[in-house]
Amino acid sequence: MEFSQYDIDALMYVTNRPELVFTEGQGMWLTDHQGKRYLDFLQGWAVNCLGHSPQCIQDALAAQSKKLINPSPAFYNEPMVELASLLTKNSCFDRVFFANSGAEANEGAIKLARKWGKLNKNPKGESRFEIITFKHSFHGRTLGTMSASGKAGWDTIYAPQVPGFPKADLNDLDSVVRLINEHTVGVMLEPVQGEGGVIPATREFMQGLRELTKRHNILLIVDEVQTGMGRTGELFAYQLSNIEPDIMTLGKGIGGGVPLAALLCREEIACFEAGDQGGTYNGNPLMTAVGVAVLRALLAPGFMESVREQGAYLSTGLQNLSAKHGLGAERGEGLLRALDLGSEIGPKIVDMAREMGPVGLLLNSPRPNLLRFMSALNVSKEEIDQMLTMLSEIITRIKA
């Protein structure tokens, strides 16, 4: 089938897309409308934590769709309750609110923090509402989460921004201290800045931030939309630093490919009243049944150890590739990794990798001098080796 047979003009333009249509996916592999296969190190931007169309998600969708799809969030349903219980039993949090996207979960976290700041006023009796976020951070594409983000240029696209999000520098505790004032209610950060270039917060910074926020009686909010659900080699990235935040958001991996997200908090922070928060599809049993299947897979004996092992293997492979071609450093946590290319050849690599034949390779370049790798968490060493071989071939061709 030729690409021209598809009516792409029916879609609103929001991004540049290559002239191919994906029709099937299995594990680490995608197939397009012409039957060409691609080794996928994007996985929907770290969404497909178990790869494309894993059996456990197929089974969960098939079984739940025959029972109950959406009774309305005004009622309890079994998968919603089961997933919430699994999440709280395996984290430091007590309460869960389900949403449909990471941005929606982050928007909910902002609302929850501001509501808490209204109830826990400053010494002058005023509500606290400011949330310190970080330069180069990414929290979503709603007006509120874009304002919270530190992505360059986002302060003017839909100006004026939502006020109340002063920006600090990641891994610089003094920059946070300077921004704390009588209206500060919390600090919000990604344990690893994904869109910002896979920049991890150090263990010392996370621990210092937890001590600082406790001392000032302000909330610590971790945006784990990209780092949560096993991506960093722990179930949640905050566990790498041995701290307990007040609020956490999840997205991407929690649904393994279906629209699902979550907002979690400690009991004393759960201050929403009836009508404060909601959503037509939130916590629907079809999506939360998938969430249960995904989380049970991640909690299986040996799974997290395997993620750490494969992450170390990928890290070593990227270091060897860099040494071979004279590139920059690699960095990251678990199976969220990046390679500094030393020059702005990232977009060219992405295009050449996709257009390779007979098998293509899907990569991401969040910055022109950087590649980001977001494989499925159950990627094999053979698939990592195949990706590294293909990438080496492309770099050789570019440098020639």
Rank of each mutant, 00 (worst) to 15 (best):
Y76W: 15
G326S: 01
G197I: 06
M188Y: 15
G334A: 10
Q193C: 11
G283N: 01
E309Q: 15
K66L: 15
S175H: 06
R337L: 08
Y281P: 02
R128W: 07
H33K: 01
G196S: 08
M304A: 05
F373P: 02
T15L: 15
F97Q: 05
Q161K: 13
P259T: 13
D9V: 13
N282W: 12
W116M: 08
V307T: 09
Y313P: 00
F373E: 04
G140N: 09
P301N: 14
E82F: 10
L61Y: 11
G257F: 02
S375Q: 05
T142G: 09
L11W: 11
V47R: 15
R354S: 10
K67E: 13
E273M: 09
D172N: 15
G342A: 02
R354K: 11
G342Y: 03
W116Q: 06
L318Y: 06
D7M: 07
S147P: 01
G51V: 05
A329R: 14
A262H: 05
P54A: 06
I221A: 03
A400V: 11
F93M: 04
E224C: 02
R178C: 12
S65N: 07
N320W: 07
I395C: 05
L143I: 03
R231E: 06
N77C: 07
Q43T: 05
N282S: 06
G275M: 02
D246T: 03
D59Q: 11
E355G: 08
F303A: 06
A237I: 06
M356T: 09
G164P: 00
V258M: 05
M146W: 03
T142C: 06
A60G: 10
Q64A: 03
S4K: 13
G140R: 05
S322I: 05
K115S: 08
V187Y: 05
H216A: 09
I69A: 11
V14W: 15
E305M: 03
G25L: 02
W45R: 09
L50W: 12
V47M: 11
T396W: 12
A62S: 13
L361P: 00
H183D: 12
E107K: 07
L260R: 04
A152Y: 12
L119R: 09
S392C: 10
V81C: 15
W29A: 01
Q161R: 13
K67L: 11
A201N: 08
Q43H: 08
I180H: 05
E126P: 00
D169P: 08
D174K: 12
T389E: 12
V81L: 10
L83E: 01
V292F: 11
L212V: 00
G144F: 14
V14T: 14
I8D: 08
L61E: 11
L363W: 02
L341I: 03
A376Y: 05
D340H: 13
G228K: 02
G208W: 02
V359Y: 14
G291N: 00
D246L: 01
G186E: 00
N120Q: 08
D276G: 08
E182W: 10
F134H: 07
G328W: 00
V81Q: 09
L263Y: 03
D40H: 07
R308M: 04
G102P: 00
M374F: 10
A84N: 04
L143C: 09
L212G: 01
S4M: 03
C265M: 14
Q386E: 14
K67I: 12
K118A: 13
C49F: 04
K121Y: 08
D40Q: 05
A270Q: 02
F236W: 06
E383T: 10
E19N: 13
T15N: 15
R141P: 10
